[in-house]
């Protein structure tokens, strides 16, 4: 379990080794402050949506999952993608309303990033990987949390580097996104070095 947690944060970092959530990763990494905000929002959404989608897959969508309702031979697997999309969109909406009502300070800090996450591929991708790799409920909770933390870590570090890079003297065409990609590449190399780390 510890191993899965560690692996989902570092070695299998969603942003840097699976390229998921790249659009958001590049678009909101101009400042560390916004990067931290979107990172925390992603941890929350990912931590809730992956186990939730697991329950849905295990009891409604998967092959033979409807056995409890006497429909053992129904396979709704093809509805997986559209259901996950709906769940994530609804979750984001509900989370925003709950935060606004009970934690206005938190809502002010991360409210504007929540809608962005509704169609973030890191979130949908996390749920799809969970299905593909057959995680059980506890594993998918750990995996959701781990990938969320990993993504937040990557975007925060990346934003910090980009903030420094803004005033660097480099060729005109490389400024901005060109350099951002190369920095991401170098960071990705660094993260892949974590593959050698193993916890007992």
């Amino acid at each position: 379990m510890m191993d899965l947690f560690q692996r989902s944060i570092f070695e299998e970092n969603l942003a840097l080794s699976f390229f998921l959530g790249m659009c958001t990763f590049l678009a909101v990494s101009r400042q560390v402050k916004t990067a931290v905000g979107v990172g925390i929002s992603l941890i929350v959404v990912q931590g809730i949506s992956v186990p939730m989608n697991h329950l849905l897959y295990a009891y409604v969508l998967g092959p033979g999952a409807l056995a409890w309702a006497g429909l053992g031979d129904v396979d709704l697997n093809f509805l997986r993608l559209i259901t996950f999309l709906g769940i994530v969109a609804a979750l984001v909406q509900v989370l925003e309303m709950v935060l606004e009502r009970y934690a206005p300070a938190l809502h002010a800090a991360m409210g504007i990033y929540l809608p962005l996450l509704a169609i973030n591929c890191a979130i949908i991708g996390g749920s799809l990987f969970m299905v593909e790799r057959d995680y059980d409920l506890a594993q998918s909770a750990v995996y959701g949390l781990g990938t969320g933390i990993g993504w937040a870590l990557a975007i925060t570090a990346f934003a910090a580097i980009r903030e420094r890079l803004r005033y660097a003297d480099m060729p005109r065409g490389l400024e901005g996104l060109g350099a951002a990609f190369i920095v991401a590449g170098i960071m990705s190399m660094g993260f892949s070095a974590f593959a050698g780390v193993s916890l007992p």
Partner: peptide
């Protein structure tokens, strides 16, 4: 591996912006 994809795309963007300078980002 993953890192090379980032770096190649970064270099590709650089090449494109060197060829079409008006695409470069405003400072």
């Amino acid at each position: 591996l993953a890192p090379s994809a980032f770096i190649i795309l970064g270099l590709l963007i650089w090449a494109l912006r060197a060829w079409r300078p008006w695409l470069a980002e405003a400072r």
